[in-house]
Amino acid sequence: MATFNDIIQKNPLVLIDFSASWCGPCQQLSPILDEVKKHFGDDLSVIKIDVDKNQKLAAYYRVQGVPTMMLFKSGNQVWRQSGLLMKSELIKVINQHQK
């Protein structure tokens, strides 16, 4: 299994979703992320990370609330936001960093 760093380094654009199974907004976000992934296809990797199962990683990135999303471009964090976003808002953010 690839490590977190391998994933963000090897894929040009990676959207990370720090979430939790007990989180209502996280559950609402899940189908939105599926739609965003379909929109971008192979140009975007979407990775869900359960903060309860990956506490060290969540602490490293100072995730204080869920959902927290981060966008990595070529291994560098270029965007971060906590809370629920709609599909159109996420697509707009990703488009800004795609080139």
Rank of each mutant, 00 (worst) to 15 (best):
K92R: 04
Q81F: 02
H39A: 04
V66P: 13
R80E: 15
A58Q: 06
N54G: 04
K56L: 13
L44V: 00
A58M: 05
N95D: 13
Q27G: 09
I91K: 07
C23V: 08
D6K: 06
S74N: 14
S19K: 10
S30C: 07
M86H: 11
Y60I: 14
K10Q: 12
L29M: 08
Q77C: 14
Y60K: 15
D6T: 06
K73E: 03
L90R: 10
K10S: 11
P25M: 00
V93K: 01
E35S: 07
M70G: 13
H97C: 03
Q27S: 12
I16G: 01
N54A: 06
D34F: 03
V14T: 04
S30D: 12
P31W: 13
S45Q: 11
T68D: 15
G75I: 02
I8G: 08
Q98E: 11
N11P: 06
S21G: 13
Y61C: 02
Q28S: 14
F18S: 10
D34I: 01
S45G: 03
L15E: 00
Q96G: 02
L44T: 00
P31Q: 13
I16Q: 02
V36W: 01
K56W: 09
Q9M: 06
L57N: 03
S74C: 11
I49D: 03
S19R: 12
S74D: 14
M69S: 12
I8V: 06
V46W: 00
S21Y: 06
K37W: 10
Y60F: 13
V14D: 04
Q96V: 01
Q77A: 12
N54C: 05
N5P: 02
V93L: 05
L71Y: 04
L44R: 00
T3R: 10
W22A: 07
D42A: 11
V66F: 14
S19D: 08
P67R: 07
E89D: 15
Q28W: 10
Q9R: 08
L57R: 06
K48G: 14
P12A: 07
Q55F: 05
D43Q: 00
V63E: 08
L85S: 10
S30M: 11
V78P: 00
R80V: 15
S21C: 06
I91V: 11
L90K: 10
